Simulated scan of single mutants.
Amino acid sequence: MAAPVLILQEIDSTNAEARRRAEAGEFGPLWIAAQRQTEGRGRRGRVWEMPTGNLAQTLLLTLDKSPLDASQLTFVSALAVYDLVAHYVPPGLVSIKWPNDVLLDGRKVSGVLLESGSLGAGGLWVAIGIGVNLKAAPVSTERPATAIAEHLSADHLSPPDFETGAKHLAERFDHWLSVWQTQGFEPVRQAWIDRTPGLYGPCTARLTHETLHGTADGVEADGSLRLKLADGSIRIISAGDVFFGDNG
């Protein structure tokens, strides 16, 4: 059964609320969803805009795993968002860009931010923040963005409302979380690969202190990206902004 969903009218950030609850001794599992975020954040501290009607929610849970293993939940998140978006749009429009950006007709429709902290008795609390553009795309974005409402299939007259979207996402996340917990990362990785084009083509990786150009050469067993450089050497990319194709 999916974790319960707590729906709030307004919050600074669902991830921030999850952190506060974890530090106060509450470890879930609990989804925290907000109809409005005033200080939403993306990766590397970027602002995450949330137009009215879109979805922002964070799963707070406790894991008896290492931070490295817990990072695999970013792939679980991408699969859950993929399932949510694909339910409302025509087949073939949804894809995943390494590691967890879900694209709709080639444009970004969601974002994932995973944060964690150690527990006194061992293990981790983890906050998995997910934003999905249900009704509108933010206007000031680094990359082209879109929303489910712009690509509805003939079976849907409108995108899901906030509460429906929150519950649907929680259900799909619970499915992939169960796969991860009972079967390990490999089936999650394979499902993710099936939905992620561009893993064997031109690729640019913008890292903290350098930008690398080369050819994507698939992914490692832990989900890290293999990048083959012009001199034939291989770099393993575990985090960074990655662009596939010739326009990085």
Rank of each mutant, 00 (worst) to 15 (best):
S153E: 08
H156P: 08
T146G: 10
A166T: 14
A145T: 09
F173T: 08
H156F: 14
S178T: 15
V179N: 08
E150K: 05
S158I: 04
I148W: 01
H156A: 11
S153A: 15
L152V: 14
A149W: 01
A154F: 03
H151M: 02
R172M: 02
L177C: 02
V179L: 04
H175C: 09
A166K: 10
S158H: 04
R143C: 03
E171R: 08
S158K: 02
F173R: 10
W176P: 09
D174A: 15
F173C: 02
H156T: 13
P160R: 01
H156I: 12
E163W: 01
W180E: 08
R172G: 00
P144L: 00
D155L: 12
L157G: 15
F173L: 14
I148G: 04
P160Q: 02
R172N: 01
F173I: 03
E150R: 11
W176H: 09
H168N: 02
A166L: 12
E171A: 13
P159N: 05
I148R: 02
L157A: 15
R172S: 06
L152S: 13
R172C: 06
K167W: 10
T164I: 10
L169N: 08
K167V: 15
A149Y: 06
H175V: 13
A170M: 07
P160Y: 01
P160C: 05
A170K: 03
E150S: 15
D161H: 06
S178N: 14
S178D: 15
L177K: 06
V179F: 04
H151Q: 12
E163G: 06
P160M: 02
W180N: 13
W176A: 03
A170I: 10
H151K: 07
L157E: 12
G165V: 11
D155A: 15
A147S: 10
L157M: 01
H168C: 02
T164L: 03
S153R: 07
L152N: 12
S178K: 14
H156Y: 13
W180L: 13
T146L: 00
D174Y: 09
L157Y: 00
H175T: 13
R172L: 02
W176C: 00
G165P: 11
T164D: 04
E150P: 12
P144H: 11
G165K: 05
A170F: 01
H151P: 13
P144W: 04
V179T: 12
H168G: 00
